[in-house]
């Protein structure tokens, strides 16, 4: 009837079976913990109501040449600009060697819809919204720290490191664009 301090560690013959049982139980327990923890982490991800607005459709028909609107997408402001032929020509004329973040105008627009420039309206420096049709390059100028962008939204001068970001989008028809 003697009870040792830890009898579980004694009587060796059964050790193999016991080890297996303990390891199996620990493994099953670990699966259970992981299964319980995952939903608690996953709930932090964007919920269904946020995801439902991750992709939006926007009708371009109301924007005349030379006009620009700012729309909201995923909580961010997005410029949609119907560029004039002069602006497009100016953007195409810029040599790559002049650019801090070299990108052609074609890379920033969709073939067949070159007049449409769609980009996230936050300056790539620290996030302010640049003012349109201003600055030395006829594009945008950021009021916060003086970054200047050309008519294709490319960084030309100032502290911003990269061009204004073009979000993923595609044309569903000539006047309807789906962003995101």
């Amino acid at each position: 009837m003697a009870t040792q301090s830890n009898p579980a560690l004694q009587d060796a013959p059964q050790a193999g079976r016991r080890d297996f049982l303990y390891i199996a139980t620990a493994a099953v327990g670990a699966v259970g913990v992981a299964g319980a923890v995952w939903p608690l982490i996953n709930q932090l991800n964007p919920d269904a109501s946020v995801l439902a607005l991750a992709s939006i459709e926007f009708d371009l028909s109301g924007i005349a040449t030379g006009q620009s609107v700012t729309i909201k997408w995923r909580g961010l402001p997005v410029f949609v600009r119907n560029r004039t032929p002069e602006e497009v020509a100016a953007a195409l004329a810029v040599p790559m060697s002049d650019l801090k973040d070299p990108q052609t105008d074609q890379e920033r627009t969709k073939a067949g819809h070159e007049q449409w420039l769609i980009m996230i309206a936050n300056c790539t420096h620290l996030g302010c919204i640049p003012v349109g049709e201003s600055g030395e390059f006829g594009g945008w100028a950021c009021p916060c720290h003086g970054s200047q962008f050309d008519t294709a939204g490319r960084i030309r001068k100032g502290p911003a490191p990269t061009n204004l970001v073009v979000p993923p989008y595609e044309f569903i028809s000539d006047t309807l664009v789906q962003i995101g």
Partner: peptide
């Protein structure tokens, strides 16, 4: 399943304790 395994673990552990 886990309860079954835990029961076996508990029983084996306690087998040598009256």
């Amino acid at each position: 399943v886990f309860a079954g395994l835990m029961y076996l673990v508990k029983r084996r552990l306690w087998a040598s304790v009256a």
